[in-house]
Amino acid sequence: MNQKEFLNIVMPFKDKVFRLAKRLLVSTEEAEDATQEILLKLWSNKSKITKYNNVEAFSMTMTKNFCLDKLKSKQAQNLKIVHSNYQDHKVSLQKELEANDSVNWVAKIIEALPEQQKMVVQLRDIEQYDYDEIAKMLNMNNTAVRVALSRARKTIREQLTNTHNYGIK
């Protein structure tokens, strides 16, 4: 396998790897390093890559394990918190400010979720994998994925409504 073939396999999901890494590690720089590390690992095992029946799912599992290890290790103590820039959604300025604010809140709330729920939300609501794929990637069973996802979604929404009603009630 030469570099070009390898890149053809890897390119479609490298962003997904990066976003999952960022979801877990929070800092963009850390996530970039993690992504590079994972791509390099894949590259050094390129001879086996054709034997995996789903390279993408395999890489996502690798990313998960790598990031969790990273979080456990002492290096994680100097993680930085960086917020991403959000897209313009073509709404009026007032609305936009409000929306941006609550969108920021969503980021904060997700950040506070347990790691497993974070990953499930990331893989389902952002990357749109189906339940079986997520179950395989995270080494969980199908129902556990649904339960984690449901809990995460409810927590996010509850906390959002709380912050919104804060000034009113």
Binding site: K14, Q36, S84, Q87, V103
Partner: peptide
């Protein structure tokens, strides 16, 4: 807000080179 956040995050990309 939730869905806005999700759609915004889908677009984030890995911009660094792949250092092979």
């Amino acid at each position: 807000a939730m869905f806005a956040y999700f759609s915004a995050n889908e677009k984030e990309q890995f911009t660094k080179d792949v250092p092979l």
